[in-house]
Amino acid sequence: MATLDLIGVSKSFGATQVCRGIDLSVKDGEMVCLIGASGSGKSTLLRCINLLEPIDEGQILLDGEDISRPDLDPQGVRRRIGIVFQSFNLFPHMTAAENVMLGPRRVYRRSRADLLPDITVLFERFGLADRMYHYPDQLSGGQQQRVAIVRALAMRPEIMLFDEITSALDPELVGEVLDVLRQLRAEGMTMVLATHEMSFAREAADRVAFLHDGRVLEEGPPAQLFETPRHERTRAFLSRLARA
């Protein structure tokens, strides 16, 4: 059970302001897609939520608690929030199973023997049962990305963040990863996605937010945002995509 509320989140890297006061609410069990051009602040926003980047101003409320406070222990927050990256970032020197078990072993102090039944179920659920003891370089991009999702899920996070997780994949492998997202949505996981997969956002998202220049220019149900965008820039962005 998790809700996420961003209130006036701002973040700069030196003189470049990447997030300029972002407000966004994600209700429990909702899937919210962030769309927008590269450099619009989607990825940075996700990294801020996960505390990989400290924010400058604003609040990030997870279940009403401000997790952006610098006096909080970031490790305690990060274990509650799963994140999956564009480039998978699996640990290349470990098998898929070891990748998935590392977090629970070190953070929850559980033994491999204790974890194995749980993670076997996870691998089976996402069609990876026969890949558990493979190393990342023996897996296809789509399989690697699904293992990365399983690795995040094994921490039993309250909310999952996905940072353009299909952008580094060959087109024919995108589908299997999107299927995992559909499955998670059906199970009621709260999710925030930065994505360029417009047709997926349209079909699966509960709400879509359009980011431009570090601000949420507009948000709404996908049907409304894609059919009748209110903002001039949203229209321009969508028609640019349609032409591509």
Partner: peptide
């Protein structure tokens, strides 16, 4: 750095990140 980030995002401490993720790759 993305390897460190992946480890930190799982909630690992700096020490565990070094010991289990960074060092094994670095030594090799």
């Amino acid at each position: 750095q993305s390897q460190r980030n992946a480890a930190l995002s799982l909630g690992l401490s700096d020490r565990d990140t070094m010991r289990y993720v960074v060092l094994p790759q670095a030594i090799r």
